[in-house]
Design a protein around this nucleic acid. Sequence first.
RNA 1: GCGUCUGUAGCUCAGUGGAUAGAGCAGUGGCCUCCGGAGCCGCGUGCGGAGGUUCGAUUCCUCUCAGACGCACCA
Length: 588
Amino acid sequence: MKTILQMIEDELRPAFAACGYDEDLAKAVISNRPDLCEYQCNGAMAGAKRYHKAPIMIAQEVAEKIAGCPAFSKVDAVKPGFLNLTLSPEFVSGYLTQVAADERLGVDPIGAGKTMVLDYGGPNVAKPLHVGHLRAAIIGESLKRLYRYTGHTVLADIHLGDWGLQMGLIIEETHRRHPELPYFQADYSGEYPAEAPFTISDLEEIYPTASARSKEDAEFAAAAHDATVRLQQGDPGYTALFAHILRISVADLKKNYGKLNVSFDLWYGESDAQKYIPVMLERLKERNLLHESQGAMVVDVQQDTDTKEIPPCIIQKSDGASLYATTDLATLWQREQDFHPDGVLYVVDKRQDMHFTQVFRVSRLAGIIRPETSLTFLGFGTMNGRDGKPFKTREGGVMRLEHLIADIDQAVYERIMENRTVSAEEAQKIAQIVGLAALKYGDLSNQATKNYVFDVDRFISFEGNTGPYLLYTIVRIKSILRKYAETTGQAPASALRPAGDDSEKDLQLVLARVNEAITGSCLDIAPHRLCQYLYEVANAFNSFYHDHRILAEEDAERQQGWIALLSLVQKVMETGIDLLGFEAPEQM
RNA sequence: GCGUCUGUAGCUCAGUGGAUAGAGCAGUGGCCUCCGGAGCCGCGUGCGGAGGUUCGAUUCCUCUCAGACGCACCA
């Protein structure tokens, strides 16, 4: 379905053409002077030079041409050369009736036939999720949903950190504690136990302990290194133990991501990429890209146009081991082989900008992905505390995600209990839903690429530009529609009526932008745009609500139009928050 | 040192080559015989600084100041 801007431009284009001007001048934008008009066209000023004509003249000519157009109730050519447009109420309500009838709110499936791989996880196994994982999860999940909604086939890959020294540390520490286990018996030939020798909480303790030990105990460090190598070489006992670690961690991660309403289609890890390293290296050699530098094998990625020095990408350490870039390149190889994606999007901390610059360049040089496949790095900023420094616990440590969520839920719970008389049990459930909305909206409403201040008190506030405010608005609408259905026994009408006053018109105009908002948010990889739009919808609705007595309205036709309007507001807002990754309760 | 990013109201953040740069919070003044007042309607000092391009710059370019981050064998 066309956007309202496209529909306006459809009217403008023939008018410009009929006056002898280029159609590319017929560009419509939202008015920046709502007191004067709803939409505007600045093409006359852009064309003034081209046609050696005063812009106001051009604007006037075009205005005369489109004045009779049913889409517009008012057309003005103003001062320098603005073309000010006011849409007719019938046009707007007619458009919205179509949007309301459309399954997808008029959003075109621009991604039909396109496959996107999203990489937004990156947690390490055997380590709890902490606030550092929060942004990737929240932003990535929203983008996944936006891409799906716009018709893309999306594969979300968690890309676990499950390889390298950390695994050796855990294995060696387990060895130290339980040397009698069969995993460590060289001559063991039986089945390894089905039950893991540790729980998730054991693992969460084992890793930091082992990490600390390796720094003090050189012998232990060497043993851990050796264990890593043996695991990578496929030692059966270590492989079995590794499988336990992975299984337990993944179960725990699924649970914790689940609490965030975040899910993945693929649970691949760095370990899964290992088998693609040889073939990937072969390609680098074939293309003569690999060369030795200071003992390491590297690929030069410097380009003539660079303003800064891009160091060579290290593919193999001087001891022959692979590292971060190697794994990422091998992973890209795997993705290309398995999915032939049209795009790969990484949602990762912006401090890794250089790494992805290097990896992308190597993959282009080596043809690891097709030239037409887009490689995008969405580097998100740091989550800071109120002091503007990276977010920490009161003790100065890294905040576990579970604790953060629990704190927020508790704070929301207390507010709910203050105001409403719902049962404590009910309040708990509602607090989780509202808490998640507060957390996610607090994050997503900021530009992803910028650092932002994480302020729980502000996010969970039920006033202002917050998640809870959006939810409150939805709950309020649900309540009205519920009452309407109860008292009249009627299903909501589907046809909207032309707006009868300003606040109704304003609300309708905001709703008419829904498909642009969703599509734009996706194309710009910018969930914060959707946040802002939904906030505008909520504000417009609350103003409308304040001015109209919906359930008391005696004119049945008018009332039905309003009910249809409310249903659409609800649909837009519920769809919107779903795309952001949270939901609204029935009451709060 | 080199490079990247950021700098908008007291605070937290949006925004745009165009007409008067917007929200929220905080402050303050109104609005409940009424569908959920967790709401609505008011009240204001601001684009770090200096040049340049342009009919027009907060937006683009250069310089400059401040902060964050990054500069090969961690991920």
